[in-house]
């Protein structure tokens, strides 16, 4: 892991936190052990300002144009997008399943809400993920404390607002402890309407 200090250049607008982009891709037939998950995930940029964010974001492929089984992650600098990371181990995530064709727009909107500190839950947000799959795409937002009900409810309600979700949208929550137990990101979730 290389250590580098990302600074805010003069004239640019600082973000509340620094964030790192990650990309992962795997063969769906292979079970996702922690070991090969770590091998298949790569970070490709850290941003500290609004302008730095756009410089990277504008040059990466839109998630809706990806094929196969891949994920983009944008996480606070220092937090690995892994269930076992110190910042994630007591946490969980909200999941929104998207029909094909919506991922790029929703991904951009959830990122802008996170970078702009729209969730108002202190240090709770860890990062966001867009997961490209065959039948559907999945948007997730990870927070630090799965049993902090105030924060999880506020994150859910903010998501509904910033993504402009229809009121009947199904929202699912899964703790990372449960994901570790059944070695699955998106199965056996708790469903809220």
């Amino acid at each position: 892991q290389k250590v580098k200090e990302v600074m805010v250049p003069p004239g640019e607008h600082p973000l509340q936190y620094k964030y790192t982009f990650w990309y992962s891709r795997r063969t769906p037939s292979r079970p996702a052990s922690t070991h090969n998950y770590e091998q298949n995930i790569r970070q490709f940029g850290t941003v500290a300002s609004v302008e730095q964010f756009w410089r990277i974001y504008s040059h990466i492929v839109r998630p809706g144009d990806l094929t196969g089984y891949s994920d983009f992650h944008l996480f606070k600098d220092g937090i690995k997008p892994m269930w076992e990371d110190e910042a994630n181990k007591n946490g969980g995530k909200w999941i929104i399943r998207l029909r094909k064709g919506l991922a790029s727009r929703f991904w951009e909107n959830i990122i802008l809400a996170m970078l702009g500190e729209q969730f108002m839950v202190g240090e709770e947000i860890c990062g966001v993920v867009v997961s490209i799959r065959f039948q559907e795409d999945i948007l997730s937002i990870w927070n630090k404390t799965a049993n902090d009900q105030f924060s999880t409810v506020r994150i859910r309600d903010t998501l509904r607002r910033v993504l402009n979700l229809p009121p009947n949208t199904i929202m699912e929550y899964k703790t990372h402890t449960d994901s570790l137990k059944d070695n699955s990101s998106f199965r056996n979730t708790k469903i809220t309407v």
Partner: peptide
């Protein structure tokens, strides 16, 4: 301390700034 909050429009407007190219 104070938090740095930006709304969606502010962030989108910065996208076309020469600094963001």
């Amino acid at each position: 301390g104070t938090r740095i909050i930006y709304d969606r429009k502010f962030l989108l407007d910065r996208r076309n700034s020469p600094l963001a190219q």
